[in-house]
């Protein structure tokens, strides 16, 4: 479970100038729930993900992952979380198998469990053809699959997925959506950051709309449409944000 309480993150941009990327934000994502973090570019989605993944230190407020404070108990949080970042961060001279083995070791997994998990993920994500090839010339889709497998290697209870179907072809995207549904069935806590409304609507139980670092609305897609008195999620999104200059991908 992820619980965010009055979380604020400020960045110093010049000597006396600060920008607030996340501003006094609170929400909860329960186990067995898939929640979409929606917002236009620059809304603070990636900063939120990074705060929850302990990559950044909160300026004020805090967040809890399975009741562990992201600031004071970062190591416990890291054991319980898996993040798929926007940039894959792959070592181009390593094969997917080497990546997965290495990260399994970082998470203190037993050798046999690592090997079994690699076989499982290779099969689930359809990586059999390239699991022993260096990542150097991988396509976007292949890289995305490796990054996703690495996120899942230690079977984390909580998952933060930034644009999980980004760059994937139709079949692979479908595979990932199926995987997310499976994670929900396994009662895992899944948070997806996306700006693709169609995907959010299809995948998520609940949506959190974020703009200028603040939560502006949250609820099921149906609740958001009712709240904005609009028939489609796209119209509801634009109405709630109160402007029509945002990028919307259906």
């Amino acid at each position: 479970m992820i619980k965010v309480e009055h979380l604020t993150k400020e960045f110093k941009v010049k000597l006396f100038k600060k920008i607030t990327a996340v501003n006094d934000t609170s929400f909860t994502v329960n186990d067995g729930e898939v929640v979409g973090l929606l917002g236009p570019n620059g809304a603070g989605k990636t900063t939120m993900m990074r705060l929850l993944a302990t990559m950044l230190t909160p300026t004020h407020g805090t967040a809890y992952v399975d009741e562990y404070d992201v600031h004071t108990h970062a190591r416990e949080v890291r054991r319980r979380i898996g993040i798929l970042p926007e940039t894959w961060g792959l070592y181009e001279r390593f094969t997917p198998r080497e990546h997965l083995r290495m990260f399994g070791e970082y998470y203190d997994m037993e050798k046999d469990s690592i090997e079994n998990r690699i076989e499982e993920l290779t099969s689930t994500l359809g990586m059999g053809e390239f699991v022993d090839r260096e990542c150097k010339r991988f396509s976007r889709g292949m890289s995305q699959k490796v990054a996703l497998a690495r996120t899942l290697i230690h079977s984390p209870q909580n998952l933060l997925l930034d644009e999980p179907t980004n760059g994937l072809d139709v079949m692979s995207a479908r595979l990932v959506r199926k995987l997310i549904a499976q994670l929900r069935e396994e009662k895992r806590c899944v948070m997806i950051s996306t700006h693709i409304l169609g995907e959010a609507e299809r995948l998520c139980d609940r949506l959190i709309l974020i703009d200028n670092g603040t939560v502006v609305a949250q609820g099921t897609p149906k609740e958001l449409c009712e709240q904005a008195r609009k028939a489609t999620l796209e119209d509801a999104f634009v109405t709630i944000l109160g402007r029509d200059d945002v990028e919307v991908v259906l």
Partner: peptide
């Protein structure tokens, strides 16, 4: 630079 540090940060490595 290559974004791999992010993945190292989120592991339990001290």
């Amino acid at each position: 630079e290559r974004g791999t540090i992010e993945q190292l940060i989120v592991t339990p490595i001290r």
